[in-house]
Simulated scan of single mutants.
Amino acid sequence: MPVVLSLNIAQKTVPVDYAQKGLTAIDKRPVEGPLQVSPPGPKGSGGSGVQGDMIGDWASHGGDHQAVYGYAREDLDHWQDELGLDLHNGQFGENITTQGIDQTNALIGERWRVGTALLEVTAPRIPCRTFAGHLGLSGWVKRFTQANRPGAYFRVLEAGLIAPGDEITVVHRPDHDVTVELFFRAMLTEPELLPRLLEAGDAVPPGVIELVHKRTAVELDS
C-alpha cells in the first residue's frame, strides 16, 4: 500500500552563501502532523502549500503548481547507496517522502488522494545550485539530471490534512503519456520533447506552457 512515510517542513529559513537569494529552507525535517495542505496562490506571491513550511526563494519555489514537493524513499535509498551518505527524509527538500509509489512515471495531471487532500502532479523538480550546495557535492546538478529521478511537484485541488502514515490512492490518470520523467528530460536534456508537454493541458505550470510556445515560435521563425 503506498503511504506517506514522512511529512517534512522547514520551520525557518537559513542564510547560506550558495543560495541565489542568500536564504534557503531546503533542509526539511519530519514532523508528526497532521498539517493542513492548501493552494498557496500564484508563484512569486504564494509560498508553500504546507502549513508552517518556509520558502527561501519565492521567485523560484512555491505557488499553486509547486505547492507540495514529493520524493520517494526508494529514490533516496538509491542516492544513499550511490553517494555513501545517510539521507534523512526531507533532505532533498521534499514535503512528503513516499513509499510504495513510483513518482518518476507518474503522469502530469495524475491525481492522488493523500489524507483528506487531493493533489495533482504538475512537474518534476529542476535541480539548482542551492540543491548542490546543500548536499555539498561538486557536479551534483549534472549527476541528478542524468539519473532521471527528480521527484514530483503537486498542486492542491482540494485542501485537507496530511499526516505520516496516510495512504496514497491514485484516483485519476489522464489519457496521455506525459510522465514526470518525460517532462524532466524535455526541460533539461531533450528540448525536442517540449511540445509534447502541451498534451498534459493546464496541469502544466503556466510558465512552462509559455516557454514551449516561445520555443516553438523561435523554431518556426528560424
Rank of each mutant, 00 (worst) to 15 (best):
N95V: 06
G49T: 13
Q80C: 11
L85P: 01
E192Q: 03
E82T: 02
K12C: 11
Q36H: 07
A147T: 02
G133R: 15
P127A: 02
R113W: 11
Q146D: 02
C128K: 10
L76F: 02
G93N: 04
G47K: 12
R113S: 12
S138G: 02
H134K: 11
V156N: 02
A159C: 11
Y71L: 03
I126D: 09
G93I: 02
D17G: 11
A186H: 03
N8S: 12
Q146P: 00
L85D: 00
L197M: 06
I96Y: 11
V204C: 13
H78Q: 00
Y69N: 06
L135K: 00
Q146Y: 01
R73D: 02
N148R: 11
D53K: 12
H134L: 09
R149C: 00
Q80P: 15
K43A: 12
Q99P: 08
R143N: 06
R155D: 09
D166K: 07
L161D: 00
S48G: 05
R149T: 01
G41L: 12
S38C: 08
E32I: 14
V141K: 10
V170M: 00
G90K: 03
V3A: 07
Y18D: 09
G41I: 15
W58M: 12
S138V: 03
T116F: 13
L211C: 10
L118Q: 05
I96N: 07
T169V: 15
A163E: 04
W140L: 11
S45G: 14
E181S: 15
L137V: 10
